[in-house]
Design a protein around this nucleic acid. Structure first.
Lengths: 339, 339
DNA sequence: TTGTAGGCGTTATCAG
DNA sequence: CTGATAACGCCTACAA
């Protein structure tokens, strides 16, 4: 079965390719009769334009690229969901690539997408990466670009974020309001801006409430895993048995903490209260149910695409474009672990 | 900054486009000198072929499409991971689309991908869908096609599956071996083959162990959610308080069941034992930890792509191709919920 | 209202 | 070893 082309339609009807093209695209200067003939035939043959040819002509692929650290991750898969959704509504498809938290891979993925000539790129940085050449390269090549979640403050591009510092501040004040006096923090890796900001929020909340900041109470994740949560819980339990509150960078790790404490019969929230971040699904089913900070992940995806769309549009029309930063709201979700 | 093309390289060096193209593609019939000149210049200009043009010429996009019910799902996100991984290794990128378990959406997504002229499609059917025209359309248009997980038995294409019937059989025998005498089944929706097969496995296990099959003990999910798990748990608790074992279609629902039983202080596993399916991450952190059947999701993704690659290759070389069915192993993971 | 012609950037064929 | 030429399928000034 051969592919249907404009040429074939033209030949069978006995008119020129041009006219067929015009008829299909609803140009005004085609006689109703011809138009109908073309439309009917196209319909019956099941004609669809060859997108390769269209891409070449229009210099657009109607595909955008998305690079995230990992797909198997409650937060990111929700963001993906939002992006795909919004993209599709606007006639775009989404290619997804993972950096696996590796800078090297991330660079490769950027390159792949640029070579594919996607119309735009949305990205959340890997933990290893920061303000790097490959990111600047995207801007240099004038490929519309949006960052979300793990961003670089130094890159002038559109961003979708939450106020990590404030959210963390609120989380820690929540612990304090529940009576915690000695609060540990299991923070994210050194690089990512959001880990830094959450740490700063933690510090500020202590300060404001005249609780002395003790660097020994800060534990730094390398891989941000369930297992790390267990390890740090163990360390906290032995090194600082009088800690009565823990603010954890993300729910996955917090669940590790809970798991260890449950095993050791350390009572949560009686002996120690715990609050996580991101509101992963499992947080509401674990025992005790985990208090956390909810983050509008789906919305984040949608917003990211919208910003990208604006930029793609501006580029196409050669209009001036000013990067925007959208900040979404977070919310404390109090549950049993901080009762 | 203008796009670099073969033409530009040709002009600056003062040779023909043809020669430049050949030099870059390592054709043997180019003098070493010319080749070097071309390669050097291309390198320094950062030339990358315009993939739109390449697509048009080669009639390949090096992109495949993936349609799944939903991204935010432990099983599917793992499959995605496997597919993206394997695809990338082989020079393919992946466009992901969701059906949201809707037949109508699924049809639309298939159409989108075909219009984009992806080189192949991998798919897990939505719960609403079965053996439908849109699927046959893919085969009719000779687009390489692989199904996994939720497949249609009637479609002659490559498939990656597990032996759902056997896996379910084993799961139920596991319950029986732990002493369960009256076993309920919370099954998946009517349509999906895997829900049917798991149900059949359940029935067979009862039969083999001379436990009478009671249709009243079979509960059918519509949406396969946590909430449904809770609802059915409640129904089982009130309608059949003597049920001492439950085999649940998937972990998410099983966790709902556990959640309800925990709330009602119905003791698991003492009063009733529960086994799920798919080994979701949260199953190992919930209390009590949930027994389940593990399914090699990442592997499933990898295998799916491999089969697709074979088919794409065969098509390109115009070789004959026979669909293959790959069956992967599952494993009972006993945990506290069936102790 | 219709058609001609050129071009998007690459690849493949074939002649020099 | 090199290059002219055509073709992939579509779009769009411009002519007729």
């Amino acid at each position: 079965m051969r592919e249907i082309t404009l040429k074939q339609i033209a030949e069978t009807i006995g008119i020129s390719i041009t006219t067929v093209s015009k008829a299909l695209k609803n140009y005004p200067d085609v006689s109703p009769k011809t138009r109908k003939a073309v439309l009917d035939l196209a319909q019956s043959l099941g004609y669809t334009p060859n997108s390769f040819a269209v891409n070449l002509r229009t210099k657009e692929s109607k595909i955008i690229g998305l690079i995230i650290p990992e797909v198997v991750h409650h937060f990111f898969s929700n963001v993906i969901n939002g992006i795909i959704d919004e993209a599709e509504k606007n006639g775009y498809l989404v290619i997804i690539l993972q950096s696996n938290e590796s800078l090297e891979l991330e660079k490769k993925q950027v390159e792949l997408l640029m070579n594919k000539r996607v119309d735009g790129i949305i990205m959340s940085l890997s933990n290893e990466s920061n303000d790097d050449e490959h990111i600047r390269d995207i801007l240099r090549k004038e490929v519309p670009f949006v960052m979300f979640d793990k961003i670089s403050k130094l890159i002038p591009c559109s961003k979708v974020i939450i106020n990590d510092q404030k959210a963390a501040f609120n989380a820690v004040e929540h612990l304090i309001s529940k009576g915690c006096k000695k609060i540990a923090h299991i923070r994210g890796p050194i690089n990512p801006q959001n880990a830094i900001d959450r740490f700063l929020g933690y510090k500020k909340a202590l300060e404001k409430n005249s609780i002395p900041f003790d660097p020994k109470l800060v534990y730094t994740c390398k891989n941000v895993t369930f297992e790390e949560g267990r390890e740090f819980a163990q360390q906290i339990g032995t090194q600082h048995p009088d800690v009565d509150g823990i603010f954890v960078i993300t729910d996955l790790v917090a669940v590790g903490v809970l798991d260890y404490f449950n095993e050791m019969r350390i009572q949560v929230p009686e002996q120690v209260k715990i609050i996580g971040f991101s509101n992963w699904f499992m947080s509401q089913v674990i025992t005790p149910k985990l208090s956390t900070v909810s983050q509008p992940s789906f919305e984040m995806g949608k917003e990211s695409f919208k910003l990208l769309l604006e930029e793609m549009h501006a580029k196409k029309e050669a209009l001036p474009f000013k990067p925007k930063i959208v900040e979404l709201d977070t919310q404390i979700i109090p549950r049993q672990s901080t009762l």
